[in-house]
Design a protein around this nucleic acid. Structure first.
Lengths: 362, 362
DNA sequence: AAAATTTCCGTGTGCGCCCACGAAAGTACA
DNA sequence: TGTACTTTCGTGGGCGCACACGGAAATTTT
């Protein structure tokens, strides 16, 4: 235990021949300070490189911040959205001492009414910051206007609607993630191979991601080898088992004898397990399959080598980073970058253990 | 700004009909409390789930902790070791308020005397914790004995000598990283292809890593397809340009006409750029090359598609995590896991931008 | 039984900062 | 010259906790 001489408000006050209260006033620009005094103090602060002691400051101020989070409820189909919550809680535990309280809200992404209601509920709690996954852009837009008027800090997580602005966005660049997947297929496949791009869409919309990912995927090959693979896109709407099965069967069918069989399938979202299930039932394991996100059912297929690799969106980290961002802004008074893109992690059977957040966060 | 009723020492004191001082004494087991009183207070604390306010606590205690770090100086050959420093500093900035001071030390890994001297210097500063890369196991061993006697917390970073114990190790599992690389080669290469495992060693020792990585690499193929590839190992000692070139030339030579040319090279450390340089000069770009770490010269080859992928050791994160670990132990009083293995990140031309720590950490 | 300890516990001060309150000095207007 | 403001600044009481100090009660000593 060593001691380091710390510059304090009292010390500044002494050197400026004023009282601590005056220093405090200029630090927080609370006015009521004569211009020359203010200047003198400001200079001293700069010279001494004085920074208020964060702990003492938050302790004394006793401020309490409320941050509301709004993400889809994790249903059995996709426990993806359970993970940002873990990130929220981890962050909340870390910075809770600073008077930051977390209040989670959830909605059903099949029901825009639940989203609307949640937004109303959130406003009624008068939060200082809101972290939300902006499904339903129109509803989000209305909310943003109100929030801005109230000086509420807004953070987008996972998705972003580019037409309106938020403080910061935390998520993954979908176009780039498509490129990453493409590069791996480029390594794994050979010239002339056929590859299926499968978009398994929800009828409810929110499929912008998939398009961007496909765009990135095709971009890659356009720039690095337009004739390397034969790319075909299959769009499947809805997630009825039968329909998916049927469409896949057609896509994989080899009517034209002159063509090779499909040797790679890129699924543009986390529903890749549907395809893996299909391949398993039909005993087709001689092709390279890839998709998104570490859902339990995807992981299973990854371990069985039925899925070659997955792109992870780092959902836990998304939650963590977005929550920490409000801490940095509100408490540390830092300015935030407009977008915080998280790494596009490549997950295989061999490194997945390090990406599953089964570790305890205590 | 919401208010949350916080349980305080004063409140506990009220309910226990004692003064705050007494509560404080039982919290810190400072004795001088009658057994029944102590029990009553302990129960109250448990029932109320009371946790002392971390900020108030550290502010009042005024304790100061010194943490020394010892890693190789980043030389021009490898600026790898510059990155843990960035992690240290990032962490140091984050938890500096809690009275944690960072004092960095460096050594030259070609000169064990500098290591020994650094250890002496460190001891003379009487640190509360030491984070070090345990090159020179024998010297480290002696240091550990002394440190333990002084109650100094020890953390290993990047490397670990398994024969003696530290509080926690932060780094990557070398065996597993070998498996990860193997899996990718498995995807990229075809049955019967030849693959070279290249160990570019330093004469000074410290090559345990490489052996472990090769072990993991071979493990993979042993378990998943012993006859998939033809694996050959080449060991190169020293890093003289000429010698490396010569040995590689022999390794790649196709004397036996019946054999295919080499189609993959796995370099077990960051010196992969030597091989890339060689391939570039000899215009051989039809094989899959991979290695370790995002050195600038490796990144260049990665971008030029001469290196297919790199395994990252997350050096910045290693620094960050190790430093944060002393915070968690010393301030938060948490217990630490023996080993903190960081993810084995797969880096390609397409996702590297998210792993380069060119972002400002302010 | 008084003195000397020992055990047990309350009080007070301070960590560095925030902020409400009010005092002093300056300015305006009558 | 006196009243009513306004500007500028100092003071004091916290925030929740740590810890030194000293006092009262219980226990031991002679």
């Amino acid at each position: 235990m060593k001691s380091g001489e710390r510059m304090t408000i009292a010390e500044i006050a002494r050197r400026a021949n004023v009282s601590a209260g005056t220093i405090d006033r200029v630090i927080h620009n609370r006015g009521e300070v004569a211009a020359p005094t203010r200047e003198k103090i400001l200079n001293l602060i700069r010279e001494m490189n004085f920074k208020p002691h964060l702990l003492a400051s938050t302790l004394a101020s006793g401020k309490d911040y409320l941050v509301a989070t709004l993400i889809p409820a994790a249903d059995n189909d996709s426990l993806f959205w359970h993970q940002p919550s873990m990130g929220f809680e981890k962050a909340s535990r870390q910075v809770g001492h600073y008077g930051i309280t977390h209040q989670p809200f959830y909605f059903d992404y099949f029901d825009r009414n639940t989203f609307e209601k949640a937004l109303r509920d959130i406003l009624s709690t008068k939060p200082d910051a809101v972290i939300l996954a902006p499904f339903f852009p129109d509803l989000t837009a209305g909310f943003l206007t109100k929030a801005e008027a109230l000086g509420i800090m807004i953070i987008f997580i996972n998705l972003t609607t580019f037409n309106h602005s938020c403080q910061t966005f935390v998520g993954q660049d979908p176009v780039h993630s498509g490129r990453v997947a493409a590069h791996l297929f480029d390594l794994a496949l050979r010239k002339g191979d056929r590859l299926l791009i499968v978009n398994i869409m929800s009828e409810k919309g929110g499929n912008v991601h998939l398009m961007s990912r496909e765009e990135g995927f095709r971009n890659y090959f356009n720039s690095y080898g337009p004739d390397k693979l034969e790319l075909e896109t299959i769009n499947i709407y809805g997630n009825s088992q039968a329909q998916i099965e049927q469409t896949l069967k057609e896509g994989l069918a080899n009517n034209d004898i002159s063509r090779r069989p499909v040797s790679g399938i890129f699924v543009t979202n986390s529903r890749v397990f549907y395809v893996a299930d299909f391949l398993e039932r039909n005993a087709r394991n001689n092709l390279v399959l890839a998709g998104y996100d570490l859902l339990e059912c995807n992981v299973k297929h990854l371990m069985d080598n039925r899925i070659a690799f997955l792109i992870s969106q780092n959902p836990v980290e998304q939650g963590y980073r977005s929550f920490m961002s409000v801490f940095e802004k509100l408490i540390m008074k830092k300015s935030l970058p407009l977008r915080q893109y998280l790494p596009i992690d490549i997950i295989t059977r061999e490194n997945i253990m390090y990406y599953l957040n089964t570790q305890s966060y205590d």
